[in-house]
Design a protein around this nucleic acid. Sequence first.
RNA 1: CGGGGAGUGGCGCAGCCUGGUUAGCGCGCCUGCCUUGGGAGCAGGAGGUCGUCGGUUCAAAUCCGAUCUCCCCGACCA
Length: 488
Amino acid sequence: MRKVSEAKEERLVTQITPKSEDFSRWYIDLIRRAELADYAPMKGMMVIRPYGYAIWENIQKLLDRRIKATGHVNAYFPVFIPESFLRKEMEHLKGFAPEVAWVTHGGDDELEERLAVRPTSEAIIGFMYAKWIKSWRDLPVLINQWANVVRWEKVTRPFLRTTEFLWQEGHTAHETYEQAQEETLLILNMYKEFVENELAIPVIHGRKTEREKFAGALATYAIEGLMSDGKALQMGTSHNLGQHFAQVFNIRFEDRNQNLQYVWQTSWGVSTRLIGALVMAHGDDSGLVFPPQVAPIQVIIVPISIGNWKDTVLPVALKIKESLDKAGLRVFLDDRTEYTPGWKFAEWELRGVPLRLEIGPRDVKNNQVVAVRRETREKLIINQDNLEEKIKELLALVQKTMFEKALAFQQANTREAENYEEFKSIIEEKRGFIRAFWCGAEECEARIKEETMATIRVIPMDEEGGVNGRCVYCQKEAHTRAIFARSY
RNA sequence: CGGGGAGUGGCGCAGCCUGGUUAGCGCGCCUGCCUUGGGAGCAGGAGGUCGUCGGUUCAAAUCCGAUCUCCCCGACCA
């Protein structure tokens, strides 16, 4: 493998708004131009197009494997939830009421009772668990569902916040608080590992404050990623629900000592928002950059069409495609005659394909291919012998490099704030994560949000208690350090 | 949900203020020739009830009202 060219800095794609010029516009342009999604004719709703949906399928495949490996099984619950079920749990309902879509009619007949289109499934699942769980021998119940949910949001953006979205929601029931807590953290760590290793996005994991936690939960934990505009994005949550829903839905079991007890529950989820995170964390002015593990197409082969290329170059390109296919890689051979090679280079860069192989007459003659890495634009010449293994290694390297790049960005944009002046100037001028002491008072948290638009994203796992300092806002004694940021 | 901006062939825009033949331009698309190692060239061609509904007028893309959708900035959230 020989490097023939350094990373190119020039901007080779001009059909999207530059990222530096207008991040929001860049994001929207890119999603539509790369055909990840398109607007549907109803407010806040979108169509996930095949190229975008392929990413979701890859996410599902990689995460589902992990969910099952930890003993969970998949099931499916109804999309409608009777209003009375939601009303049973006022704290929960209050949290979701403004964004619930209601079904009032079946055909022309008005329903006796309105049905909520699920904003999340705790209520219906709680009802069913009450029927299924009788004994400690029935526990734990470890169920996950892949589903769509609807939340009538006021402000929407493709993938980040849409009226309907796809997600997985895990709902478990346990004998003890400790087991529920262990499950909550197991999943939190699974999410972190998944997002970092497969999506190549470093995240900070930690606990949400009371203000920010899920309605009805004892505690909410989350992973937070930093997007390349310096804003934070919540990328997954894991809740310890305690016995709250168990009491409301009367989910009881006879324990090992023959006492009747309420179960301890958890719920957790990640959504199609992760696709938005991929765009915002890795994309550049030339377009998308997908990590190989979830890229719809991992390798794009562009034959260089010169002279009688169909007789000389194309058969070799086809042979290489087949061998990479056989090696289990997602490969596409772009043999379209109506586009020039240069056009194809730009197009597939915009679509974020992590690795491009160019094969021209010179390469055929020399038994080689030219490989170009999307994330560095580095150009390499690779001998065709044992190509599958070399490509696999290269893709692994791309994956690793993408994570390291994102991690370096996150670290460079995580700053300590000793006092409020510092805090404000960082938020105004640099954004990113701010690590600062917090006294624990909701008052301080609220004031900071009001004055700077920054919220506590999480209290990192290792920063809760056991540290000593002074609250960045009120200067009172603090034993907690929190991560603040402006967020999506 | 408040404040601001915008909807005109697939995409990006001009035209609107000051109503008046056939609504233009660039890119894309189609056909042909020629090309193809970083978004080629030439020639010909197709494609638009001007977001939608209503009003004013002899006449509406243009003026008025309503409505839908999108974008940006603020209050709520995977």
